[in-house]
């Protein structure tokens, strides 16, 4: 008996629906551009040099050699912005994946098994949700900065970027978990599931093959909308000194910039703000489009 999972047509038509709007398509292009820049930064092949200081060249305005000008140590602001992209994307990606995995697993377990497992998991995320987000990530980021763990005999040291990603990931799974749990509960009573159980399917297989496909769209929506909030969170954490250390990040650039404005040095603030602005904007537009495309409630509605 086949389960009525979302057919290929569903995804295809959803995709087409999303891309039909020029706004969504352009946004996607911009997002991919950012991802490409981040990836490029990661490979390090011929990436612009953000590191070399040149004190003679401090605080130069934008010019041909330095399109975004230079900072207090004479470092190229464009290069820093590029590196900052890599930081922002990798943090947001890691955090998103972590949150996704945790939220998915816990949501499915809670929804499917019910009982005390459900109670426990519900209690866990209700508790986490009761702490205001900014407070929560501050607390986690603070505790996790520069920590050394001994796990199975090996020593792990969490620093900078990893601490932020970990803090954001460990706290960001709650929304998704709730949603998935709701969907899982709805689906577990469906006939095909009951039938499969009667046939003796193990819970694991059941979850993965029957329920999981029906909740994936929620995960996709949450992922795209959550990405943007992780970027903003990283900026704020870095600004407060809890973020990445020693490497450029948009948050640290803004922190420098607030003093620089007084000497009339506007370019670093402009660069970081613009970088954040465009990725946020496009992610919002694209995220909305994805949600509109995938959400069955809104399909067929004309706005």
């Amino acid at each position: 008996m086949t389960a009525p999972e979302k057919s290929r047509n569903y995804w295809l038509s959803a995709g087409r629906e999303v891309l039909r709007r020029p706004r969504a398509a352009v946004s996607l292009a911009v997002i991919l551009f950012y991802l490409a820049v981040a990836l490029w930064g990661f490979t390090g092949w011929k990436t612009p040099d953000w590191e070399t200081e040149n004190f003679e060249m401090a605080y130069r305005p934008p010019s041909r050699a330095h399109p975004f000008g230079t900072d207090i140590y004479g470092r190229d602001v464009l290069a820093k912005t590029v590196y900052g992209t890599r930081v922002a994307v990798s943090v947001a990606l890691t955090a998103s994946v972590l949150a996704l995995v945790i939220g998915l697993v816990l949501g499915l377990l809670a929804g499917y098994f019910g009982g005390w497992i459900d109670d426990l998991i519900t209690w866990l995320f209700s508790t986490l949700q009761s702490i205001p987000y900014i407070l929560l990530i501050l607390a986690f980021a603070f505790v996790l900065q520069d920590r050394t763990f001994t796990l199975f005999g090996a020593e792990f040291r969490i620093r900078g970027i990893n601490a932020v990603s970990l803090a954001l990931g460990l706290t960001g799974w709650v929304g998704l978990c709730r949603l998935i749990r709701g969907e899982a509960i709805k689906h577990r009573e469906r006939e095909y599931v009951l039938a499969a159980r009667a046939l003796g399917s193990s819970p694991g297989r059941l979850i993965v093959r029957q329920i999981l496909p029906n909740v994936v769209h929620l995960a996709v929506i949450t992922f795209s909308l959550g990405f943007v909030s992780y970027i903003h969170a990283e900026v704020i954490l870095s600004f407060l000194g809890l973020g990445v250390k020693h490497v450029p990040s948009w948050g640290v650039m803004i922190d420098d910039a607030k003093l620089e404005l007084f000497r009339g040095v506007w370019w670093q603030l402009a660069a970081a703000t613009a970088a954040i602005f465009f990725i946020s904007l496009t992610l919002h537009i694209f995220g909305d489009a994805v949600r509109d495309g995938l959400d069955p409630r809104l399909r067929g509605e004309r706005r």
């Binding site: 200081e53 207090i72 140590y73 000194g241 020693h246 922190d255 420098d256 607030k258 003093l259």
Partner: peptide
């Protein structure tokens, strides 16, 4: 100090 200028000075030393 934890303000921006302190950070910049610390960074300078590190560099």
């Amino acid at each position: 100090g934890t303000d921006t200028t302190a950070r910049q000075m610390g960074e300078y030393f590190r560099i």
